[in-house]
């Protein structure tokens, strides 16, 4: 099978941008807080978990304030969660377009993910302020790993998004399955607890979860000023495999999208 996704993106880059901007505009149209909602979710979760894990069940964060510890993971996790959720709905929500006009359908999926990157950068700038507030170093040389970590995360999200959106056209069970799966996934990923709580001998299995490697890497780089652990390589491999599977399934199902009424 010929990999055409890059061609699609290149030839339809204007459409990709237009649809991304449409998604962003439409999302925050007629809302007072607008784009501020982008940070509401990770911030709210941060407060809840901070109260829970500092006052009630203290956890060892390696000397970093729990606020920063949790928020640094919640920001990328929120990107992961919201972009996958949006991607799964992206085809079904635009069936009237899909059934009437031809263009590469992956544009719809990719652009909603890109739209969530805006939310991500806003939430990330709050993280930046938090780091400053707690006198943690910023712009260290480890930050150079950030694009790589983000890229791995996006590969994984897009793979799942392509898989989920294409299958959801035929079976609406998919959205519920993903919602449930993502909820459980949250607890299987070191977001609210440190990875040190996982017994040493179980970690090779634990890190089969690519998000575990990704989140740990964000944290190492952002708040501990250490380069990512080698588990990030495993995350990268798993993510790329998932992206390929997702892409193949998507392209296989794509010709039938318009036939589903």
């Amino acid at each position: 099978m010929q990999i055409t996704v890059l061609n699609d993106i290149k030839n339809h880059s204007d459409l990709l941008l237009a649809w991304t901007s449409r998604t962003i505009r439409a999302r925050y149209q007629q809302s007072i807080l607008g784009i501020l909602w982008a940070i509401a979710q990770p911030l709210a979760m941060m407060f809840v978990f901070t109260i829970l894990f500092t006052r009630i069940i203290p956890v060892d964060t390696g000397g970093v304030p729990y606020v920063v510890f949790s928020y640094s993971a919640l920001v990328p996790w929120t990107l992961f969660l919201t972009s996958i959720t949006d991607m799964i709905e992206s085809l079904v929500a635009n069936m009237n377009l899909v059934s009437k006009i031809y263009f590469p359908r992956d544009i719809l999926v990719i652009s909603v993910m890109m739209a969530r990157l805006l939310d991500f950068s806003i939430a990330f700038s709050i993280l930046f302020l938090l780091l400053l507030y707690y006198h943690l170093p910023v712009f260290t040389k480890e930050w150079l790993f950030l694009p790589l970590i983000l890229l791995i995360q996006l590969c994984l999200s897009l793979g799942l998004g392509l898989l989920g959106s294409a299958t959801n056209v035929f079976l609406r069970d998919v959205r519920h399955l993903f919602a449930l799966g993502l909820q459980l996934w949250f607890y299987a990923t070191p977001i609210i607890y440190p990875v040190t709580m996982i017994p040493e001998n179980l970690r090779p299995f634990y890190f089969l979860n690519p998000m575990a490697g990704v989140i740990t890497a964000y944290r190492s780089v952002l708040i501990y000023q250490t380069p990512p652990e080698s588990y990030l390589i495993l995350s990268g491999i798993v993510s790329v495999v998932i992206l390929i599977i997702g892409y193949i399934v998507f392209k296989r199902l794509e010709p039938s999208f318009a036939d589903v009424v």
Partner: peptide
Amino acid sequence: GTILGMKK
């Protein structure tokens, strides 16, 4: 326009 295939 972009959906129909035009460039910006």
